[in-house]
Design a protein around this nucleic acid. Structure first.
Lengths: 244, 244
DNA sequence: CCAAAAGTGTTAACAGTACACCCATGC
DNA sequence: GCATGGGTGTACTGTTAACACTTTTGG
């Protein structure tokens, strides 16, 4: 008995749902939390805005079981934005599987979120089955027609990130440019959480990270821009400085 | 054109994975964090221990899209333990979807965890395709042959709960009996996190919860048990006291 | 000099930690 | 009485929060 038939013998025979990955791609630009949305070019929800995403490749399901969920997420991100896994912070968010969430049939969607640094935000444009693609301010989402249950997915992503940025430094690290000022980092926190942070108190946290070696001085200085005293530039020690 | 054919027109035609829910059912008894495991009676992994779980019912996928993921989790819990959703704290954990995690074919598994109060721990026994079922101490899991990637799922659940119990009171609420002593609550925290908590300092947190009305005095008193001064009994205000 | 933005210092309140001590019960 | 576990008090430390203040730049 060959191995494949030995496997096939135990094959499940139940009805199966489709499985997709949906990507909540976020970045902070211009004092604003922005989200990548695709305008659907097909039914259902033609003309509505939706999260980028697509089907998980499953192979024949026996010999070739297809791609990992994480790989599917990275692939979708690459296809829609050109970004690679090294450029962003990517993490699974939640799996949405209510019956009826897609009128075409049963679809279970594994949602991921991706945080894009401000200095790597790609220009986006219409793709295969997308009529259009743009970055939309999260604060203006209520005026937008979203497809499927994507409003729920986005709301959960924003809530999760707002909570997690306080204790997981990687989130802020992955939203800020390679070199950044104290005020820029602070504004990332403010935009993501919706809170105001006292400048002095925030700087104390910041200075502690310098003492701990988490943050280091950035080599160059930024071109003198607006009015007021020019700010020091810093960088996270870990990776991004030497990374690329 | 009937509604069903209008929908069928848009039906997805991709290869689809099977989707299951796996349940990490935990409780704290006898100073120990315990986990419900099933001994598999069939290949693959016959004789190995596995998490309770099963397929998500999908219906025909068009007119009837089957059950929600959450409903599937509640149903599996009920089938294996007799517990209802009201008895436990139930939450989605993570979705495991690596290719090759099940030798029979592509399976995406949505993992949930359920926390069972110490006074509602059901007796369990062998079921349909389970040779046996028991509560096993999490600290002794390294000696046990686990099926599939269930060791990873359990590890993630334990880690998540250990982190979350510190800031989400619902977890401790759902592990402790309807009425409980300060020491019992403290031991739940100790067993779940693996830390030691200073009695006095823990009691301060506890007393603050009383001031805030989160915890109230429990009516009766417990039968005099061991040596030493008998402890006061308390209950969480919210629900469990009046709940049933 | 003035506006604007960067950056520092001071204080009080609060929460966490370590540790010593007292109270009530069974035997 | 004494062992056992329940329960409290105190002093120290570190973090947070509010707010006033100084520094450096462009015009």
């Amino acid at each position: 008995m060959s191995r494949s038939s030995a496997r096939a013998k135990f094959r499940y025979e139940h009805a199966r749902p489709s499985v997709t990955v949906d990507m909540v791609v976020l970045t902070v630009v211009d004092f604003d939390l922005k989200l990548l949305l695709i305008e659907r070019g097909q039914e259902p929800f033609e003309g509505h805005w939706a999260l980028p995403g697509g089907f998980v490749q499953v192979g024949d399901g026996i010999e070739d079981q297809g791609e990992d969920l994480d790989v599917a997420a990275v692939r979708e991100l690459q296809e829609e934005t050109g970004l690679s896994a090294r450029d962003v912070f990517l993490e699974q968010l939640y799996t949405f599987g209510k019956a009826g969430r897609d009128p075409r049939g049963r679809v279970v969607s594994v949602a991921y979120y991706a945080l894009v640094p401000a200095d790597r935000v790609p220009r986006v444009r219409a793709g295969d089955d997308a009529a259009d693609a743009t970055w939309i301010s999260v604060s203006r989402l209520d005026r937008i027609d979203l497809a499927f249950d994507h409003a729920d997915i986005i709301a959960l992503a924003v809530e999760r990130i707002a909570g997690k940025i306080e204790y997981d430094l990687r989130l802020a690290m992955s939203l800020v440019p390679r070199s950044f000022t104290k005020a820029e980092l602070r504004r990332v926190f403010e935009v993501v959480t919706g809170n105001d942070y006292d400048k002095s108190n925030f700087n104390k946290r910041f200075n502690r990270m310098i003492e701990d070696g988490v943050i280091v001085d950035a080599p160059g200085k930024r071109a003198g821009s607006g009015p007021g005293r020019p700010a020091h530039l810093y960088a996270f020690a870990g990776k991004r400085l030497a990374g690329l």
